[in-house]
């Protein structure tokens, strides 16, 4: 059991990791074919993750409904919503589930007129939260904070047409702030984060990092 839970995954991570690195440097057709096959296998595994997610979600909500936990009504709504979408997917505008996705139909209508507005509304809450967070925290407590505040104000004005309407300098200043100091900072963070990602990847490939296996210490 230990072999399947610990040793085999580590061997697999090492072998696939090394192959993944090598195929980047080897142009030979054998290496390219291997890369193509690995990509297809990964796509299949990634697709299975959706089924796993679905099972996990349905189990979670079923447990809540069955035990009448607080908020179980919302879990029922989740089940009903899922059922309605499945009905329309199976119906597939009259073509049935084994036909390719129909261009129109109930599924597309629900997607565009229910799902998209719901998610857009959640995203739009950010506008309100940004305003309240900005009011609470964007205060010039120090010279550095004042400088940051000034830069933020210039970029906020420069990114909308009213900035250019007020003065042509504002959008140019905003563009300079984005393209020079912001880019420099972003590049520095990118270098550091990339080095960190390389180090962590090496630890995973060589079996030093095992958190992804679960269980903490080895």
């Amino acid at each position: 059991m230990i072999f399947l839970r610990r040793t085999f995954p580590l061997i697999l991570a090492f072998v696939v990791g090394v192959i993944g690195i090598l195929v980047f440097y080897v142009p030979h057709s054998v290496a390219q074919a291997l890369e193509r096959d690995l990509a297809k296998w990964f796509m299949i595994i990634a697709a299975f993750a959706y089924f796993l997610g679905l099972y996990s979600l349905m189990t979670l909500h079923w447990t809540r409904v069955r035990a009448r936990q607080p908020g179980w009504g919302y879990s029922l709504v989740a089940y009903l919503s899922f059922a309605v979408m499945v009905v329309f997917i199976v119906y597939n505008d009259g073509h049935g589930p084994f036909h390719a996705q129909a261009e129109a139909g109930g599924y597309q209508w629900l997607y565009l007129n229910v799902y998209v507005p719901c998610t857009s509304s959640m995203f739009s809450i950010l506008a309100f939260f940004i305003a309240s967070a900005a009011y609470r925290t964007f205060r010039a407590r120090s010279p550095e904070a004042a400088l940051l505040l000034l830069a933020g104000l210039i970029v906020m004005l420069g990114r909308v047409p009213i900035g250019a309407y007020i003065s042509d300098v504002i959008p140019d200043a905003a563009q300079w702030l984005m393209a020079v100091p912001n880019m420099a900072a972003k590049r520095g963070i990118l270098l550091g984060v990339s080095l960190g990602a390389i180090a962590t990847s090496l630890r995973i490939i060589f079996g030093i990092e095992r958190a992804y296996l679960g269980g903490g210490e080895e």
Partner: peptide, 24 residues
């Protein structure tokens, strides 16, 4: 969409200025 975006940016800037004035 630039109409509401421009006005909202001005409103947020106004609140930030108000926050800093009250802070000082």
């Amino acid at each position: 969409g630039m109409r509401p975006q421009s006005v909202t940016h001005i409103i947020i800037i106004a609140f930030i200025v108000l926050a800093n004035v009250t802070f000082f």
